[in-house]
Write a protein that binds this DNA or RNA. Sequence first.
DNA 1: ATTACTAAAATACGAGTAG
DNA 2: TCTACTCGTATTTTAGTAA
Lengths: 218, 218
Amino acid sequence: MKPHHITALKHIAMLGGVKEHVSFSSATFGSMLGVSQQSASKRLLDLTREGFISRNIVARREQVKLTTKGVEVLRREFADYKIIFEAAKELTLTGVLASGLGEGAFYMRQRGYKEQFARRLGYEPYEGTLNLRCSGKDLANLEVLRQAEGIQIDEFRSGGRMFGGAKCFRARMGSVDCAVIIPLRSHYSDTVELISKFNLRTRLGLSDGDSLELSVLL
Amino acid sequence: MKPHHITALKHIAMLGGVKEHVSFSSATFGSMLGVSQQSASKRLLDLTREGFISRNIVARREQVKLTTKGVEVLRREFADYKIIFEAAKELTLTGVLASGLGEGAFYMRQRGYKEQFARRLGYEPYEGTLNLRCSGKDLANLEVLRQAEGIQIDEFRSGGRMFGGAKCFRARMGSVDCAVIIPLRSHYSDTVELISKFNLRTRLGLSDGDSLELSVLL
DNA sequence: ATTACTAAAATACGAGTAG
DNA sequence: TCTACTCGTATTTTAGTAA
């Protein structure tokens, strides 16, 4: 991703291209970026080809909107600036408790993970995870976590397959300690997994759809 | 300011170059930016020449820190992203009441300003201003205001001199309506002026050094 | 080890212009 | 009008290398 492509995306976003299709001519766009109509046109072509924006050229007017991939790029940038200027040691993440697939429990039963969590977090987590689904402003905070270092959990091999690495962050939900897990080699997701020494669901009386707020240590 | 220079500044900032001198080789810097050592070296030369960073090359290790001008560039970028993702209609600005130079009152007595404020804000402001000095996180919010459109106050000529244009934003301090004024053609400042229908100083019993919080409408 | 010069290669740019 | 092509020029990049 080249700097001038990020700048171009940013300008489209500032016109409202994150939420809806926006219209502008390539000449106008050029003067926003401080380049010629021709270069602006090329930027739009490049961004389209690489899947960062979608275009509908209807009649005269051109309609441009950022794709999810395009928005992601900007969210990542935003997260960088948050780290620079808000260098917070703590971050509040809110989201909705999503129904798990029981998958989390499978992973948490693996010795390779169990041992690492025990060693790095100081406790052996309950065999099960909560899924926290974030939206809006919290997606940007999630991005801050993705950029941040966190506590490393290494990948390992067991039973003939690989179990991927992850990083985790200590957090508190109410008065209960827990940890946020972010898989290392995964594509973008609006959902993170929470683990804790306890069965958070029963201990805090949670059910799917509940709104959760946690403060995460960076 | 070229996009790749902004990216370079951002990376220096992420290493901590906003607050203190940081060390890294041009080769390391190059791999951070995804360019060669030679290009990274050139970036550092360019940024130095243009006054965005200061360098001390002592012995082997190089010390780099962003200048005020450099930090400003990034704050402006950050403000853009805030506008994109936080598209807030309202913004909270906090700061400290700074002693005015009496200058504000001079300007507020000018008919050219008085009339425009009366027309655009719906009231004729008290002849005097408060100076609000911002710091830290609020400087970024100030930058959001500078990027935002606001209510235009046009420049005018009177008594053989020009009075510059400005933009203002409706705001509330506690339960009192007021407005934040941002001069259009001025260099960076951490201080904004507040006007109101009332003498805010006496009405709210304010004195220099008091901490103020206002919610500003964008 | 470094940084940064020179020169050649690669890339980006915009004028002209077609569709 | 508009977008986006070609193509000559300008800028940027990097390899090689000096200090």
